[in-house]
C-alpha cells in the first residue's frame, strides 16, 4: 500500500515542523488531498492512525483532518482550464498517475487543443495545510 509511504511523510514532516516551532503536543494536522493522485482514503487514514501510535507524547492526542482539493489543469498553449473528471484515463493510466502524478503529462491532453503542455493549478497530491498544537 503506497498510501502508507505518503502517510509516513506527513507524520515525519509534522513532527519536524512541530519541533522547529517548539510544540510539545500536536493537536491537529490538516492535510489536503489533491484529486489527481487518487489517494485511497481508507488505507491512508489507517496508516496515519498506525504511524501516530508509534510516536510518543508529541502526537498522543493528535487529530488528522483531511480536506479534498479538486484537480484543475490549465493549458499553457490555449489557456483552457479543465477538471480531472474531464480527463478520460484508463485504469492503468490512473494507476501510474497515482504513483507519480506528473506522469499525467504522458496520458492527459488539453481537451481543446490536445497539447500535453499544461500546468496543474491545484490538486496535485498530498500537502500539509496547517499544524496546530501546544507550546
Amino acid at each position: 500500500m503506497h498510501e502508507w509511504a505518503l502517510a509516513e511523510a506527513v507524520i515525519e514532516a509534522a513532527v519536524e515542523d512541530a519541533r522547529k516551532e517548539g510544540m510539545t503536543r500536536i493537536r491537529e494536522i490538516t492535510v489536503r488531498i489533491g484529486e489527481l493522485q487518487q489517494i485511497e482514503l481508507d488505507p491512508f487514514t489507517f496508516a496515519l492512525d498506525e504511524i501516530i501510535k508509534l510516536h510518543g507524547e508529541l502526537l498522543q492526542h493528535a487529530q488528522v483532518k483531511l480536506e479534498d482539493e479538486p484537480a484543475i489543469f490549465k493549458c499553457r498553449v490555449c489557456s483552457t482550464e479543465w477538471h480531472y473528471q474531464k480527463a478520460s484515463l484508463n485504469e492503468a493510466e490512473g494507476e501510474a498517475i497515482h504513483f507519480a502524478p506528473e506522469v499525467a503529462h504522458a496520458y492527459m491532453r488539453c481537451p481543446r487543443c490536445k497539447s500535453p503542455d499544461f500546468e496543474v493549478l491545484q490538486g496535485r497530491g498530498v500537502t500539509i495545510q496547517r499544524i496546530t498544537g501546544l507550546k
Binding site: 498517475i97 506528473e102 506522469v103
Partner: peptide
Amino acid sequence: ICYFTGDEPAPLRGEDITNAMLELLAI
C-alpha cells in the same frame, strides 16, 4: 519513472521534474 510513463513521451517542465523526482524518492 519509466515504470509509470511506459513509452509515452512525458513533456515535463522544471517544477514537474522536481515533483516527480521527489515523489520517487519519498515512496
